[in-house]
Simulated assay, not measured.
Amino acid sequence: MLEAENNRLSDNLATKVSTLKSLALDIETETNDQNRYLDGMDGEFDSTQGLLGGSVRRFDQMLKSGKHNRKLMCYLILTLLFLFIVFYFLIGHVTRG
């Protein structure tokens, strides 16, 4: 009777260990997938940082280069500001009505 109880408990323990092993393997697989995803994002952020850095350098050069470019930059900023205000009112109008 004790041996049968021990065998039943041993089988129960083996089942639980198997379940834990399966969970550990699933966690490892998910962790590896997430690490690959994060590594890909790291590369994307690096390329974006390079792109933004280049844009800032070009913008800085344009500001330093002369009066004509400053006038052009002023027009560009005013145009962007105007477009922002127009879109702000259009979006406000669409969401209200």
Score class of each variant (00 low, 15 high):
R36C: 05
F84S: 03
T15P: 00
L13Q: 03
S65L: 02
N32M: 14
M73E: 00
G53C: 11
G92N: 02
F87L: 01
R96M: 15
V17M: 05
D39K: 10
E30N: 07
S10G: 03
D26S: 04
V86L: 11
N12L: 10
L90C: 07
G54H: 14
L76N: 03
L81N: 10
V86T: 07
K67E: 15
I91R: 05
T19S: 11
N35A: 15
S18P: 04
F89W: 10
V17P: 01
V56D: 12
S10L: 05
N7E: 06
L78T: 09
L81C: 08
L2C: 02
D60F: 00
S10D: 04
G43S: 02
G50Y: 09
L78P: 07
R58D: 05
S55A: 12
D39G: 10
L51T: 13
N6I: 10
R36I: 03
V94T: 07
A24N: 09
L81I: 12
L78Q: 13
G53I: 12
L25N: 13
L81F: 13
T48V: 14
E3L: 13
E28G: 06
M73Q: 01
I85P: 04
S22V: 06
D39E: 15
N12D: 15
S47T: 14
A14W: 03
F45L: 08
E5L: 08
G92M: 01
S22P: 07
L38K: 06
L52D: 12
L38M: 14
N35V: 15
S22T: 13
F89C: 10
F84T: 06
Y88P: 08
F87Y: 01
F82G: 11
F82W: 10
L80N: 12
G53F: 09
L13V: 06
F84E: 07
I91F: 08
T31P: 12
T15M: 09
L76W: 00
F45M: 05
G66V: 00
Y75N: 10
K71G: 13
I91P: 05
S18Y: 05
I27D: 10
T48M: 15
I85N: 08
M73I: 00
Q61N: 12
F89Q: 08
T15N: 07
V86A: 09
L13G: 00
I85H: 04
L63R: 02
V86Q: 05
R8N: 09
N35K: 15
S65K: 01
L20R: 07
N7C: 03
L80G: 11
D33C: 07
C74K: 10
L51V: 09
N6G: 02
G66P: 02
I85C: 04
G92W: 01
F82I: 03
N32R: 14
D39H: 11
D26L: 04
K71D: 12
D60R: 03
L23C: 07
D42W: 06
G66E: 03
L80R: 14
L52G: 13
L13W: 01
D60G: 02
K64Q: 09
N32P: 11
D42P: 01
N12C: 04
V56W: 08
S22M: 12
R36D: 05
A4C: 02
N69Y: 08
R36T: 07
L80S: 12
T19A: 12
R36V: 05
K64S: 06
T95A: 11
E28Q: 07
Y88Q: 12
K21F: 06
Q34F: 06
S10V: 00
L81V: 09
D11K: 12
L38T: 13
T15V: 10
M62S: 13
